[in-house]
Amino acid sequence: MLKISNLEKRYGKNEPVLKGLDLTVDGSSVVSIVGASGAGKSTLLRCINRLVEPTSGRIQLNGLDLVDLRGAELRRARRKIGMVFQGFNLIDRLTVMENVLSGRLGYVSLYRAITRKYPQSDIDRAFHLMERVGIDHYANKRADQLSGGERQRVAVVRALMQEPEILLADEPTASLDPKTSQQIMSLLQALASEMDLPVLINIHNVTQARMYTDRIVGMRHGQMIFDGGPKDFNQDALDAIYGGIESPDEQGQTIETAPAAEGASV
């Protein structure tokens, strides 16, 4: 269970990006976080695995306080938090297998990491997961030779190699074409239920959020302004989240009204 309470993040002396945010995620639910660019979605996810340092507040993962961890403790906690990125963030010049095995870096010794002598159980797990997402035949290919969808699958497998207790996905489909991005979303949905894994997905595509996730959290200006099931996510919620800002989903309709609304909202 992930429990975030009163989370605040401010960069320097600017207006805070997150303003006292509370969020609880239990079980294996797939939660999507929607909101305009700059609403604080990415900062929220990065605070959880401490790629970004929260200014104040508490984040607990299965009872463990994440905010005050340092050094080795922090690294041990990060092992349990898988993350998938918009730009995949694979090690381009290494093979797919090395990328997948790098998900075990938090568990193996430096010597094993350098010599690539990973334990047999890790290699078995790697092949098993690669077969599950259909990339096992690429094991010895260089990661930068794969297509976008395939690379994101490698990234997902890398995260799953960590034996995570939660999976964070920061706009995992934003660099993919519509069809591939649907495949990745449905893969994440399926893996969540197969592995009994809670998944938090930042997403711009509201239609996909409705289709593939159990719960939608809407953010605006660093605050949570919607929390409910896909069925409750109606036009009013959409307007509240994107009001005055064009929604990437409906650019065609909102682009003309945007200048008028801009004056009103400031």
Partner: peptide, 21 residues
Amino acid sequence: DWGQVEAMKSVGAGYFKTLIY
């Protein structure tokens, strides 16, 4: 590309493992 470094940090790799990968 800092993203690759972030990815290694996020799996829980320490300083030297992050350098190497």
